[in-house]
């Protein structure tokens, strides 16, 4: 009887896996999210802890880079002052597409406790944000979960980035 579908991945079958371009590109992207080192305040300490051995970001393929040219995600960890706002925009522009932004902690989300003249009231006034992590400061587990959610988001996206650009304006 003719088989409708041949299971190639079966034992003894052909060493072939079928997939789509979207899936294989996003599989690669989501498992090598290189993060830009962006510790601005105390959240940066939690971000460092997430990268260190106890929480171990390397398992996800998330490696911190000191250059925006080599990074895929910008983890804004800490208070963004108005003096620094132009630099975060410049660094974001220097990152190559596709790029994502995680806003980590209350200060980056909304300005947090710094209801003052010198603090930007949320980084989403400057750059588009993909994920907001609550907490002051968020535990490394929160950041881990955030990176997992970002992976999930990346896998749901189209691999072709000719889609609409994520610009605020």
């Amino acid at each position: 009887m003719a088989q409708h579908k041949v299971n190639y991945s079966q034992d003894g079958g052909l060493p072939v896996a079928l997939t789509t371009i979207d899936k294989v590109v996003n599989w690669g992207r989501s498992n090598s999210i290189w993060a830009l080192t962006y510790g601005l305040a105390c959240c940066g300490i939690e971000m460092m802890a997430s990268g260190a051995s106890r929480f171990d970001f390397d398992r996800y393929g998330t490696i911190f880079r000191a250059s925006p040219r080599q990074s895929d995600v910008m983890i804004v960890a800490g208070t963004l002052t108005k003096k620094h706002a132009e630099f975060i925009k410049r660094l974001y522009d220097q990152m190559a597409e596709p790029r994502w932004v995680i806003s980590m902690g209350s200060c980056a989300n909304t300005g947090g406790m710094f209801n003052t003249y010198s603090t930007v009231q949320g980084v989403d006034r400057i750059i588009p944000v993909d994920l907001y992590l609550p907490g002051c400061a968020p535990r490394p587990e929160t950041l881990q979960y955030g990176v997992m959610l970002l992976q999930k988001k990346i896998r749901a996206q189209k691999a072709d980035k000719s889609q609409v650009k994520k610009r605020l304006i």
């Binding site: 108005k82 706002a85 132009e86 925009k89 209350s106 909304t110 300005g111 947090g112 406790m113 209801n115 003249y117 010198s118 930007v120 009231q121 949320g122 006034r125 400057i126 605020l168 304006i169």
Partner: peptide, 26 residues
């Protein structure tokens, strides 16, 4: 001046309407 500092500097005054005023109620 302080409220619009970063918007004016990065995007220009015409972006004020798009970005909107600061939400100060945390």
């Amino acid at each position: 001046f302080a409220a619009w500092y970063e918007v004016d500097k990065i995007y220009g005054k015409e972006a004020r309407e798009i970005i909107g005023p600061e939400i100060r109620d945390t």
